[in-house]
Design a protein around this nucleic acid. Structure first.
Lengths: 338, 338
DNA sequence: TACGTTTGTTTAAACGTTAAAGCAACCATG
DNA sequence: CATGGTTGCTTTAACGTTTAAACAAACGTA
């Protein structure tokens, strides 16, 4: 490693004291009455020596790290890796560093990652909270840590969050199937207490009710994350026994993927007999003969909004707290340009 | 934010000097002759006060950040997001922080990200280098920065790297198609000067030659990253005009995805007429009627090995430099448990 | 001519660590 | 009983910043 150049070196070079250099290079030259002349000299020397500030020293002094922690469920899940990418890009532009952690939807892992990030003194968090993580997050908020929830939220928690309107999205998805004349519409969800999943179920119920379609509890399938394959197999088998369903609404991308796989392995032509609609984009649905309508989440906007909200909060520009709900778009029919 | 507790607080609590506390808490108690008794008191107090070391202060002093920079092509590409996940997990276990950056396969973006990470004083890098990034990386090495290349490498560069045996993998993939009796075997690759891509092409050539199959240059398709859809469309059209091919070997997951999409939109039953083999796993190939054989890369092992190599190097345990080549596995036939 | 103000700079202190050197008290040894 | 080596601790200094306070010189005003 090269011997790093510090403020000291520049100071020596120009022949002034260290603080003066600091003032100029952090843009506080004017307010500290540094003469234009020396300011120029300092800037020139800094450039010549290729000065790079020591962020550790700065953080030590200012108690700000310009780093945010982002805890998602699993960064190898396409939805989250796309989100991660957006956040990474946006943070890069704003000169913030991002540290990612995956919770794997487990409270215990979540807490470990949280602690890890806290020990790194991040300035704030963007979090897609897993089930049962509410107390940990309340704790953070109590200590005035900047937090923005993303994708998920908690009822009765006064926290910044950026989510979609899951109820509306779900109503619209279900409605799409109803409009096609289906009556026996199943939905596949995760067994979870998370509010946004509950909302998606609610949307399904509401759509059915509004359309005057009787709810058949047997058509509401809950998959356990611990045994997704097994549960899905059982579910698909049941949905297609005796009295087959007309349509299925999968509430997440992972559910859809596994569900479709099972369905197709049972009957290659199944998509000719049953209509399917899915939450989230998946580029490989194009492999299927029939286009599968899906609920497109505005991932880019979600990530950007969350980061803006967070940085505003960190830098003290934040209003009270905001719950931002973005719109989803039902993609149907024509293949969109990816 | 809570008022953070520091070594000072513990020292005051126990009634000893600050360095003593530092010695004990960093496990250097013995070698600094701290008595067992006071050591215990210090540990107890640290726990009671829930002491968390200030890593910035430590880094400032030690010039180590326990942070590594990981530059991949695009973290939203499944191959890289899986790799990222493995590295994240492994680093977490070893108490290292990871900062990711995506190069988007562009030298300019790569350099920016590199600079960003350097300014964060990372201790080392894991890099999947894009084309033309060789000079930047040579520079790093010249300054004795710890670097491990992953997935890609440069000929004639003395750098740690963890890659697969691309030639062998490619020979084996091509051979698989030859064994099935095909003669007109096309391959689709990216237009790129990267060595690992060249190796994959070489493997293809070698396999053909060994089997005594004449090479037809028209069957070697190079896709430009700037216009992948357009190029792919043209290529697929040509491959299936006049004298259709018997089989196609796609050299990356993204190529395969786009290629298959185009093929299927041209003819739903195309996979009954042409054999396909692909580099990299993709969970949604299961949507297809026919199983598609693929080259499985040992992503987990790649990530873990790269991190181990890097940390060894950072902590001075590194041998000269190592080029580690892992084996791929041709997955064919029976659907494997994902 | 004296005096407050402005201008441009320096000095001092601090952030929380770690590393080296210093220092007393005790012990064993010849 | 002086000598030298342990043992257990403290003091000092430093890492590279930022912030506040101090200061000297020049200036404007009366």
């Amino acid at each position: 490693m090269k011997p790093k150049v510090s403020l000291k070196d520049i100071a020596k070079e120009v022949g002034v004291s260290i603080p003066l250099v600091s003032y100029v290079l952090t843009g506080k030259g004017k307010e500290n009455r540094v003469s234009e002349e020396t300011a120029q000299k300092i800037l020139k020397a800094a450039k010549a020596l290729n000065y790079q500030p020591n962020l550790n020293a700065r953080s030590l002094k200012t108690n700000k790290t310009k780093t945010i922690g982002v805890i998602l469920a699993d960064i190898s899940n396409p939805f989250f890796s796309n989100l991660a990418r957006v956040i990474e890009d946006e943070a890069f532009l704003r000169d913030y560093t991002v540290i990612f952690g995956s919770s794997d939807e487990k409270k215990e892992k979540f807490d470990k990652v949280l602690e890890f990030l806290l020990s790194r003194q991040v300035d704030g968090f963007i979090i897609a909270p897993p089930q049962d993580s509410k107390p940990s997050i309340s704790n953070l908020l109590k200590q005035k840590t900047s937090v923005v929830l993303i994708d998920r939220y908690f009822k009765d928690m006064e926290a910044n969050c950026v989510i979609i309107d899951n109820v509306a999205a779900s109503v619209s998805a279900t409605d799409h199937l109803i409009q096609k004349g289906h009556k026996r519409i199943a939905t596949v969800a995760y067994k979870s207490k998370l509010a946004h999943f509950a909302d998606r179920c609610d949307g399904y119920y509401q759509a059915l009710e509004q359309a005057g379609v009787a709810l058949d509890e047997k058509l509401v399938v809950k998959i356990d994350r611990e045994s997704p394959k097994k549960d899905m197999k059982k579910a698909i088998n049941e949905l297609f026994s005796n009295e087959p369903v007309d349509a299925i609404y999968f509430q997440t991308n992972t559910l859809a993927e596994e569900g479709l796989r099972q369905m197709l392995s049972m009957d290659r032509d199944i998509l000719k007999k049953v209509d399917v609609i899915v939450f989230d984009q998946n580029s490989t649905y194009h492999f299927l003969e029939n286009f599968i309508p899906y609920m497109n989440q505005p991932i880019k906007k979600m990530g950007q909004t969350a980061l803006s909200l967070l940085i505003d909060d960190i830098e003290g520009k934040g209003k009270k707290y905001q719950k931002i709900q973005l719109k989803t778009k039902l993609e149907t029919g024509v293949e969109s340009e990816l």
